[in-house]
Design a protein around this nucleic acid. Sequence first.
DNA 1: CGCCGAGTTGAACTGAATCAAGAAACGTGG
DNA 2: CCACGTTTCTTGATTCAGTTCAACTCGGCG
Lengths: 197, 197
Amino acid sequence: MNTFTLSTFLTSHIEIEADFVETLMAQCKSLKVDKGSYLLKPGEICQHSFYVEQGLLRYYSIDEKGKEHILQFASEGWFVSDRESVYFHQPSHYFIQALENSRIILFNEDFITGLAQENKSFLEFNNKLLHNHIRHLQNRINQLLSASAEDRYLHFIKIYPDLLLRIPQSMVASYLGITPESLSRVRKDLATKNFKK
Amino acid sequence: MNTFTLSTFLTSHIEIEADFVETLMAQCKSLKVDKGSYLLKPGEICQHSFYVEQGLLRYYSIDEKGKEHILQFASEGWFVSDRESVYFHQPSHYFIQALENSRIILFNEDFITGLAQENKSFLEFNNKLLHNHIRHLQNRINQLLSASAEDRYLHFIKIYPDLLLRIPQSMVASYLGITPESLSRVRKDLATKNFKK
DNA sequence: CGCCGAGTTGAACTGAATCAAGAAACGTGG
DNA sequence: CCACGTTTCTTGATTCAGTTCAACTCGGCG
């Protein structure tokens, strides 16, 4: 059985009436995507927030030199979307791609904002998501400004130990803002440090 | 005359009834702060969003090595706050400080969320602020991951040309995530490049 | 005048990138 | 279950962007 269904998520995060959850669920599309497939590509206007019930997504950009930069991973119980693109109706600069076969719930944003006006607890829920998003982004910026590659890696394995087992190391490096080679060396250094202790 | 009063800002950003603006304004405290003084310090729980009518603020952290890292500047027409601290009622890790004598409007967050439930256009306004915030944070992360110090500086002067004249260069460096010495060299390089062209 | 803080410059250093090669792990088909 | 090719990870040598520390310049201001 699966504890990451959307309804479980909703009821665990906010005070919400069971029948409201039902009607909400009934109006959200569920989607199965294969590993490697894309939910968003640059140039498209992002139409949804994606909730991951099962599987793993990544949210990333490619710069002028062709390098990938992963902004976010989303495994079970997480939301991803290009909120800038959704909200301001602008073409995205980002990719959202499945790293595993996944089961996703699509949230249409207009639908969401509509609900937020009707239902108080849903408004709170939406607000919580936005603030949580801001919190993550801000922490990330502060860390990129202040911490070394090693510190950032240590922080990553502390926060996302589960992801370590599911994604290739090169993607961790991309998330941290370093090259795969550098991450390999950081890990080597840490190993010898721990050995000495 | 001043075009950055809060009421001007509100009416230019959303469809909102004039009398609602009035009642809103009546309930927000205005505050004059001297250059150098603090609106938030680490350990405090941030209680407000700060709207800048006049002047300039910075939002920054200090890391373990004692280095400052500026996350955001806020001049006329901008909001700042530690949304994480406000929303989750957690002690902040950040400073908010006036870089000039400033006139600030205080937004109590509970008050805001209350209003958002009553007034539809205010809900939209609040949503717009949050999404705008997310947009900025995301762009910043993407840039820290992908762009060189020089690129980041060029982007900065393009986006915030006005700030260049108002803040010391060392703070621009802090915002960009480099040392003042490095920024000085970046500028030198750019000058000779432009000369050659 | 003389000080003071901001900015610049230089020289040495360092963390991380790059490029190239090799080793290990992994999945697929025989 | 093994052999093979492919992708992932590691390692080494070199280069490079940005840091550090120290000295110097400059403009403003008492």
